[in-house]
Design a protein around this nucleic acid. Sequence first.
DNA 1: CATTGAAGCGGAATCAATTCCGCTTCAACG
DNA 2: CGTTGAAGCGGAATTGATTCCGCTTCAATG
Lengths: 188, 188
Amino acid sequence: MGAVTRERTDAARNRAKILAAAEGIVAARGVQGLQMADVAAAAGVGVGTLYRRFGDRSGLAYALIDRREREFQAAFIEGPPPLGPGAEPAARAKAFLRALADRTAEQLDLLLMAETASPLARFGGAYDAYHGHLSMLIGRFRPGADAHCLADALLAPLAAPLLAHRLGETGVERVKSALDDLLDGLAG
Amino acid sequence: MGAVTRERTDAARNRAKILAAAEGIVAARGVQGLQMADVAAAAGVGVGTLYRRFGDRSGLAYALIDRREREFQAAFIEGPPPLGPGAEPAARAKAFLRALADRTAEQLDLLLMAETASPLARFGGAYDAYHGHLSMLIGRFRPGADAHCLADALLAPLAAPLLAHRLGETGVERVKSALDDLLDGLAG
DNA sequence: CATTGAAGCGGAATCAATTCCGCTTCAACG
DNA sequence: CGTTGAAGCGGAATTGATTCCGCTTCAATG
């Protein structure tokens, strides 16, 4: 273990250049305009470099998403109640799902693209953090239940494709209310 | 209205040839081997014809899926209880979600591919049928609730990507139980 | 049976993601 | 410093889906 071979300095510089270029392109042309060759050109590197750093298109998208991701994770792990510690588990779970719904809606385009490009990549990184947190809370207010699976089931309605579909015809608010109902059923 | 310009006979013949060829390829080489050019060659038509008939790769996948789809739809719409009419709404909903979980698991490969290729296509066709049915049942045993959104929320955990992830580490059974718990919370 | 225009067809061309691989640059070490 | 092997790089080549478009076949009609 230990000594996790640090990223070389030129590699780190390229990572930054690529992320900056990608962000600019998304801002200018939308997620659809995020083409690997263009990003590489804008960043002044070869496409091979993009793939070395980010794996694939969805990896790049997740990297872009991760920036705001971290703030959110900090908020529910160590922030003030009702999201952070201090509130009742059931109330925290409710607040968490509501906040996650908003956050997902905010970056819907990128998330949709990322999940489309590789739908299983979702289950790693951020998802695990969400899942771990939620199943911990469920375990508290509903001991004995299969918190692991229930957490998956409650997170599923917030997957990008479903939310995208729903936003087309109703608001996020109704999605949140529906999740409230489900949680009330479990807790009450 | 009416007169829905019937599909030309040669077109219908090609549709059948293509579906047969596609089925053969999936059987022989798996879903991954379902490449448009190969299917076209095996069916003895040009690729253009595939696209004219099915729109895109995911359209072809959905067409393949639809065959068993129809049996399932008949089962919950007019089959015997507990799936079909005659049982209590809450019991029917539970049976429905359990059956859908099994059905989805059966065709997981095709579904995963289809949803990946175009994640929003899911919301049309079969999904609407599921959604309509489930929200109707929810409306019965839980009047006043937002059946529409609750139905979405309960169907979400059965989306192919999540199920694929879960099957990797636990069985379908636990997914079904988790859904039972959520339904019990709503009904009880 | 001839006409005819919509529907359908084939397959080459296009477009973008992803892979490959020979060459270059770090940075740890002597 | 000079050596050296791993890490990184660029960009041409590959792969596979999707689009395009000039030509062909239906089938309704007179």
